[in-house]
Design a binder for these strands. Structure first.
Length: 889
RNA sequence: GGGGUCAUAGCUCAGUUGGUUAGAGCGAUCGCCUCACACGCGAUAGGUCGAUGGUUCGAAUCCAUUUGACCCCACCA
């Protein structure tokens, strides 16, 4: 026999088989024209991040796809890598410095950068080892990192190309300024949050009169940079004031009252203070009316030198209170109202964004966005679920230019040099040594670095050696376009859309055809897993407890396409139980096998009905799993797997085989039964492998080879995935078997409901329609075993023995003679309940058939079906009634 | 303000073009330590498919209205 431990211990096998796969390079793909590539780009996690359940789910799905396709013979490549994550990583190191009592500025740029490099070396990439624990079959030979020299060259190339084409430009714009991180961030890194704010009302004196103009604002501190007051041109209250001037308190500047349609008379006071350097709308108005732009804040959000005392140097929120206090002192303050408003916050530092006027680099997006939108419109680029297409298109159709410069030190430095003599700008793939305009050597590089996404968007290109191995390197032409991108809907703009744009721009084709959005992981209350809430589940902890297979299976089975998945730790017990079930089912089969035992082929064997049903069921499961995976319905695929292995293979297949297994070794019936079981188990393990790589590998390796599965490679991960079309089909037998299952269930139900001791064996009489009579005769042994019968009498002429319990089904009645044991009243009650249930169904059917327009208009097959049902119900009902009558006698 | 998703058993969700008696897992209840597995086996209960109206011979499914929950986008000071 083949020995297996009484229960599955993941710790014994997971590391072993992962190492095995790595040693044999099963996960590595190289360019091979004879094989079709199947490529998935792993969304690169931040190099310093830790594995969380979001990764656990998303990457388990990717691994499922990759392993599945690899088994189907594709040259599967799952490209792993990490992202340098400029802001996030710099923040972590700056926090360390703070603890040490220093700052990056005190340290200097070069030292600070080195510190980050060291830090990444030491702590970075931990997440990659965690991926190995999960069993992810990445092509580690291709491991990439966005700051790798190779990938950095691609960043440089793309920047230079786009700059020379005029698609990258420098401009003074109002940008989202993060006062904590002291950098600009892009629109997509800003999140609006509703906060309870205050709307302040105060007045500005109108020059040359004793009148005032009332103002309402939520940000009084910006008044120091006001350069106008605007009203709606149609507003009767203020019409006569247009063109007059206001004496701005504290600064004593004279600013004009202007008219602009933007102003809504009904809001606030109907007059708006205009601060073009600190508000996006005011910025536009400022441009329209050629107003001055006065920046009154520093990088850190304090009031700048150009502001008067007592405001100068105050933090913006302190200054806000101070302005109000001073306005009160001047008697210009009216009132304040509490006011709910949405305010932009920095995604990273969580601080309130300060719109700030500054010089930044931008990518002009319109031209890039159009083809990307078109690809989705034409259906060339597909989203799963499809509803995201609208979101994607909306963003592309309303695209804004992308601010790519960051005032950080961690990242790719912008490859731009300014000439101190002619003020010209130079760039190049190589660092220039002199100004490309005046040849002066007096040049200095731009201080800023690029947005991290400016390197991430090249993920479909740069890891494959593009462009430094030529803009159509062999690898790139082979693996790009990739097949499916599995990612979170949150980064559809930040990442997905941009990859599409840049791939289309530089390769004139899509980076991938399918985008699968996986569910957001939430707790049972529906709250997103987050560090601050501490409601997350640590996948490593759960892996330690239940094993990677259990975690993968559970995560995938819980996750519907898109949407959200609610999970708690206890859910993983499900997966754990399933893994254990597979283990124990194998244990039963293995008990009767010798290692390397030679098994007969199924061809030429006289299979039993139950065996044919089981084989047919495997075929059906194979077809379903495959179809669900093709349709990106991963949880359905996994559910079918569970259904088949547990509900079909274990509950019926193995139970039926037990009598044959009990035969002595070498008996031909036992050999036959084993051949079927090993064949089916082998198929089941192959089907399950993409979800549960380790337990399936361990069992598969121990199991003897079955001739009908062909050659056996060194690992199940490269064994052929089952193909329904190549498997034996027994559809008629499967239908017949359904009746046997109904009979067994009927008997069990009667026994259980009537409280008959489970161990007590009873004779069973079965009245069966002529058509299935021989089937039931054949199945008597199974009925005995499965329904605890000591004797089975069956046939079309069987009649109700006196004093018996009964059950009826489609085409049969079963009787359990139980002289003396019968509780007549209980049995009567049970039968009448059943009678009522069937009567209700029959009434519904009759209702339909008596409806003239149903008979007239319903299609023939539906009508026929209904008639068959009617006959069936009537038959069953009459049988029950007879039994009730017999009981009463 | 615009767009999107969802509402089905106590819980989490299936239900793919409208058509047998609306399913599964978990939980609950009852009975079983049956020689692979108590991480197990067998059985049972539980739903007027959010509400209203419409289309249809027929609606959980399609349409309209409505209630509630969530997500994304958006510059009303």
């Amino acid at each position: 026999m083949i020995e297996l431990e009484p229960s599955y211990d993941h710790k014994l096998y997971e590391k072993k088989w992962y190492r095995h796969s790595l040693e044999h390079k099963f996960f590595s793909a190289s360019v091979d024209a004879s094989k079709t590539p199947y490529t998935i780009l792993m969304p690169p996690p931040n190099v310093t991040s830790q594995l969380h359940m979001g990764h656990g789910l998303g990457y388990s799905i990717q691994d499922l796809f990759v392993r599945w396709k690899r088994m189907k013979g594709f040259n599967a490549c799952w490209l792993p890598g990490t992202d340098h994550a400029g802001i996030a990583t710099q923040m972590m190191v700056e926090k360390d410095l703070e603890r040490e009592g220093t700052t990056r500025r005190a340290m200097g740029r070069e030292k600070f950068f080195q510190r980050l490099v060291d830090w990444k070396e030491k702590y970075g990439g931990m997440i990659l080892d965690q991926f190995k624990t999960m069993g992810f079959s990445c092509d580690w030979d291709k491991l990439a990192y966005t700051m790798d020299p190779k990938l950095s060259e691609a960043v440089r190339y793309v920047f230079v190309e786009l700059y020379r084409e005029g698609l990258i430009y420098r401009g003074e714009r109002l940008v989202n300024w993060d006062t904590v991180l002291q950098t600009a961030i892009s629109d997509d890194e800003v999140e609006s949050q509703e906060i309870q704010g205050i709307l302040y009302y105060y007045r500005y004196p109108i020059e040359g009169t004793d009148q005032f103009i009332p103002i309402a604002t939520t940000r009084p501190e910006t008044m120091l940079g006001d350069t106008a007051v605007a009203v709606n041109p149609e507003d009767e209250r203020f019409k006569q004031l247009i063109g007059k001037q206001v004496r701005l308190p504290f600064t004593n500047r004279l600013i004009p009252i202007i008219a602009d349609d933007y102003v809504k008379s009904e809001f606030g006071t109907g007059a708006v203070k205009i601060t073009p350097a600190h508000d996006p709308n005011d910025f536009e108005i400022g441009k329209r009316h050629k107003l001055p732009f006065i920046n009154v804040m520093t990088d850190t959000g304090t009031m700048a030198e150009n502001t008067p005392t007592p405001f100068q140097g105050l933090d913006r929120f302190v200054a806000r209170k101070e302005v109000i206090k001073q306005m009160k002192a001047l008697g210009l303050f009216d009132e304040e109202k509490s006011y709910k408003t949405t305010v932009p916050h920095s995604e990273r530092s969580k601080t309130i964004i300060e719109p700030r006027l500054s010089q930044q680099w931008f990518v002009s997006m319109k031209q890039l966005a159009e083809p990307a939108a078109e690809a989705a419109r034409q259906g060339e680029l597909q989203f799963h679920p499809e509803s995201w297409k609208k979101t994607y298109l909306y963003w592309l159709d309303n695209i804004q230019d992308w601010c790519i410069s960051r005032q950080l030190w961690w990242g790719h430095r912008i490859p731009i040099w300014y000439c101190k003599d002619c003020e010209g700008i130079s760039t190049g793939i190589e660092d220039p040594t002199q100004c490309e305009h005046c040849q002066s050597k007096n040049i200095r590089q731009d201080e800023d670095v690029l947005d991290t996404w400016f390197s991430s968007w090249l993920w479909p290109l740069s890891p494959f050696g593009w462009p430094n191995e030529g803009t159509s390197s062999k690898q790139l032409e082979y693996f790009n376009p990739t097949d499916v991108l599995v990612t979170a809907p949150e980064i559809i703009f930040l990442w997905v859309a941009r990859m599409v744009m840049v791939n289309l721009k530089f390769k004139q084709r899509l980076p991938f055809k399918h985008v699968y959005f996986n569910a957001t992981v939430c707790d049972k209350q529906g709250r997103k897993f987050s560090k601050t809430l501490g409601n997350g589940i640590d996948p490593l902890e759960v892996v330690e407890l239940h094993g990677a297979d259990a975690v993968r299976f559970t995560a995938i089975s819980l996750a519907p396409l898109g949407g959200r998945v609610r999970m708690e730790k206890e859910d993983f017990e499900n997966g754990s139980r399933f893994v254990n079930k597979i283990w124990n089912a194998s244990r039963l089969v293995f008990q009767h096998l010798e290692p390397n035992q030679t098994l007969p082929s199924l061809k030429g064997l006289q299979l039993s009905l139950a065996e044919k049903w089981l084989l047919n069921r495997l075929r059906e499961a194979t077809e379903k799993v495959d179809r669900h995976l093709e349709g990106y319905r991963v949880n359905d695929a996994v559910e079918e797997l569970h259904h088949f292995i547990w509900g079909a293979f274990c509950d019926w297949g193995l139970e039926c085989a037990k009598s044959d297994l009990a035969l002595p070794a070498g008996h031909k019936d036992k050999e036959r039964a084993l051949s079927v079981l090993v064949y089916v188990l082998d198929g089941a393990l192959r089907l399950a492998h993409p979800v549960m790589p380790f337990v399936t590998e361990e069992l598969w390796q121990k199991m003897p080879k079955h001739p009908d599965w062909g050659d056996r490679p060194e690992s199940i991960c490269i064994a052929a995935f089952p193909q329904a079309g190549l498997m034996p089909a027994y559809e008629d037998e499967a239908k017949q078997w359904k009746t046997i299952q109904d009979i067994v269930s009927g008997i069990r139900s009667v026994r259980s409901q009537m409280g008959l001791p489970p161990r007590q064996e009873l004779p069973v009489h079965i009245r069966i329609d002529e058509a299935l009579a021989s089937t039931v005769t054949q199945a008597e042994e199974w009925i005995k075993r499965l329904a605890k019968a000591d004797k089975v009498v069956s046939g079309p002429e069987v009649v109700r023995p006196g004093q018996s319990l009964s059950a009826v089904g489609k085409g049969f009645e079963v009787y359990l003679p139980v002289q003396g044991l019968i509780d007549v009243e209980k049995e009567q009650k049970r039968l009448s309940t059943e009678e009522q249930r069937l009567q209700k169904i029959l009434s519904g059917i009759l209702g339909k058939l008596n409806n003239a327009s149903f008979v007239e208009r319903a299609p023939e097959d539906v009508l026929e079906q209904t008639r068959v049902q009617k006959a069936n119900m009537e038959e069953q009902l009459s049988a029950i009634r007879q039994n009730l009558k017999a009981l009463a006698d």
